[in-house]
C-alpha cells in the first residue's frame, strides 16, 4: 500500500463529506476501490476476531460470521430504496453521491473494526471465564455504527438542514432495523 493511498484514506476519514463529493466526480473505479478496501478490512478484522476469541485453547475454529452478512444485507436492502427515495423527495444527493457515501462509510467501518481488533487479542489473554456471547460479535455492530453514522453525517452536510437531518435519521433507522432483523435470524434468536 502506497503512502498516497493511506493519505487519501485518512483524508476521507477526516473529512467524509468532502471526500464523498470528490469521489462522486472522480472515475467510478475509485469509489469501488474504496468500498472494496473498507469491506475487506471489515470482513477480515471481524473474521480474525472470531477466530481469536472463539479459540481460547489455541485451536483454530471456523468463524461463523453471523453478524457480518447482515451488514451487507441491510445495505443492499436499504441502499437502492434510499437512492430512489432521495431523488423522489428532491434531495441534492445523486446516485454517485450515495455510492461514494457508502464507500466512505464502509472504509470508516473497516478502520473502526480493525482498530478494535487488538482489544480482542487482549481479551483472549486476560479472560478467565466463558462469556455468554463471544465478544467478537461486537465488531460487526461497531462496523454498522461506523457506516450508518458516516453516511448520516455526509447527508446532513450535503443536504439542506431539515431535509438532510430527516433523511439521515430515516436512513440510519432503516439500516439498523434491517440489520437487527437479519442479525436475529442469523443468530437463531428468531
Amino acid at each position: 500500500m502506497s503512502t498516497s493511498t493511506l493519505t487519501s484514506w485518512l483524508a476521507a476519514i477526516d473529512r467524509p463529506a468532502r471526500q464523498t463529493l470528490a469521489l462522486a466526480q472522480a472515475p467510478f473505479r475509485s469509489t469501488v476501490g474504496l468500498a472494496l478496501a473498507g469491506s475487506g478490512l471489515l470482513v477480515a478484522s471481524s473474521l480474525i476476531a472470531e477466530v481469536l476469541v472463539s479459540a481460547p485453547g489455541g485451536a483454530l475454529q471456523v468463524p461463523k460470521a453471523q453478524l457480518l452478512l447482515p451488514i451487507f444485507e441491510s445495505l443492499a436492502l436499504v441502499g437502492p430504496s434510499a437512492v430512489i427515495g432521495a431523488a423522489q423527495v428532491g434531495l441534492r444527493s445523486t446516485t454517485r453521491t450515495w455510492l461514494a457515501a457508502f464507500a466512505v462509510g464502509l472504509l470508516i467501518a473497516g478502520v473502526v473494526t480493525t482498530a478494535t481488533l487488538p482489544l480482542m487479542g487482549y481479551l483472549v489473554l486476560v479472560s478467565r471465564a466463558q462469556p455468554y456471547f463471544t465478544p467478537a460479535l461486537l465488531l460487526p455492530v461497531l462496523g454498522l455504527a461506523g457506516l450508518a453514522s458516516t453516511v448520516g453525517r455526509v447527508l446532513e452536510a450535503i443536504e439542506d438542514p431539515p431535509a438532510g437531518r430527516r433523511a439521515s435519521v430515516v436512513f440510519q433507522l432503516a439500516l439498523a432495523l434491517v440489520f437487527g432483523l437479519r442479525a436475529a435470524v442469523h443468530l437463531g434468536i428468531y
Binding site: I13, D14, R15, P16, A17, R18, A157, D160
Partner: peptide, 10 residues
Amino acid sequence: RLLIEPASPF
C-alpha cells in the same frame, strides 16, 4: 446555503 463540513477538529 453555505455547507458546514463535518471534519475532525484535529
